[in-house]
């Protein structure tokens, strides 16, 4: 693991190689967080790319006394994903409602360069997470996948700590309600063995 703060300092001093190392170090995790939040590979790639570019251009705004680099980057990523999510929903609402049919849903500019390698994920847990509302999805991913503390989550989500806590608990309850039936079947199978 490279020394992130040293790299940040080098990039601030104008060393482009440091920017590239930072980019490569955080590329996959930023993309994955965006994918978890948006559920679409192309959207995730664009949002993550936006977030990384913003972070590198605005590197002077990063203050390590306030948060770690990855917390700061996650803050930007969540922001970008919220914007994109809102835009997508707006597009869906206006076009399908006004034109009717599904034409509005397809991407009008399917760029050939945006095709992620792997097929979309579809585990049960994944499906259940994608079924959550965006605030709950943010909470569960930051807590369960990124392993942020509630304090960091409050910073990233721009909400009080108790709100972050209750969102995680609520998200867990929703997931459990969706996943529990299969869980019970699972247990019965094990018992009958």
């Amino acid at each position: 693991m490279p020394d992130i703060d040293a790299l940040v300092q080098r990039w601030r001093d104008g060393d482009e190689r440091a920017a590239e190392i930072l980019y490569n170090h955080f590329r996959d995790s930023t993309f994955r967080l965006a994918y978890g939040l948006l559920g679409d590979l192309n959207d995730a790639e664009e949002a993550a790319q936006d977030a990384l570019a913003y972070a590198l251009v605005n590197i002077h705004r990063y203050d390590r006394r306030r948060a770690s680099f990855s917390t700061w980057l996650h803050t930007i990523t969540v922001c970008r994903c919220r914007d994109r999510y809102r835009r997508n929903r707006l597009k869906k609402f206006s076009l399908t409602a006004w034109i009717g049919g599904d034409e509005g849903l397809s991407d009008p500019h399917p760029g050939p360069e945006h095709h992620a390698i792997h097929a979309e994920t579809s585990s049960q847990v994944w499906e259940a997470v994608q079924g959550l509302s965006l605030p709950l999805r943010e909470a569960i991913l930051l807590r369960y996948w990124s392993g942020h503390t509630f304090r960091e989550m409050a910073d990233i989500l721009d909400c009080p700590v108790p709100t972050a806590q209750s969102r995680v608990r609520l998200a867990y309850q929703r997931l459990r309600a969706t996943l529990a039936p299969t869980e019970l079947v699972h247990l019965e199978e094990e018992e009958s063995r």
Binding site: D28, R32, L41, A48, H115, A116, I117
Partner: peptide, 9 residues
């Protein structure tokens, strides 16, 4: 999941 090679520095 992995981003596509298009997502590069």
């Amino acid at each position: 999941v992995q981003p596509s090679p298009a997502m590069s520095f």
